[in-house]
């Protein structure tokens, strides 16, 4: 059960710079650790994080990537990422995390620009 906590200001003024925060639940198992029984714990990482901005009225498949990141083993469990974004028009922010063992988690947050 993956959960994410996303913090986006509810409304923003045009041209304003916003801070977006995204925290996701994931063990980020490195593949180097051993269990108390001595067995190697299999690697289980989030490999890629991306956030797309979809302008209001357009379909999900369009949209612009505003940030994308490749994650590696040295990143702590439950990765927290924050980034800044300039508000231009209203729309939806679509977050996507993908990783090992078919891990995939998506979240959508509306952004209202006045």
């Amino acid at each position: 059960m993956a959960r994410a906590l996303i913090t986006v200001p509810r409304t923003a003024k045009r041209g304003e710079i916003l801070e977006i925060r995204a925290l996701v639940q994931h063990p980020m198992e490195t593949g180097y650790r051993r269990s108390s029984e001595g067995d190697l714990l299999p690697r289980d990482l989030i490999r890629r994080f991306s956030c797309r901005f979809v302008e209001s009225g357009k379909t999900d498949d369009t949209g612009v990537i505003v940030i994308a990141a490749t994650l590696h083993a040295a990143i702590a469990a439950n990765p927290y990422l924050s980034f800044n974004l300039r508000a231009a028009t209203s729309g939806t922010l679509a977050f996507n995390w993908e990783g090992d063992n078919g891990f995939s988690h998506r979240e959508q947050v509306a952004l209202i620009v006045t």
Binding site: M1, R3, A4, L5, T7, R21, L23, V24, Q25, A77, N78, Y80
Partner: peptide, 11 residues
Amino acid sequence: TQNPAMLWVKD
């Protein structure tokens, strides 16, 4: 918004 325990709270 940063405290990872809030993920457990949400659960």
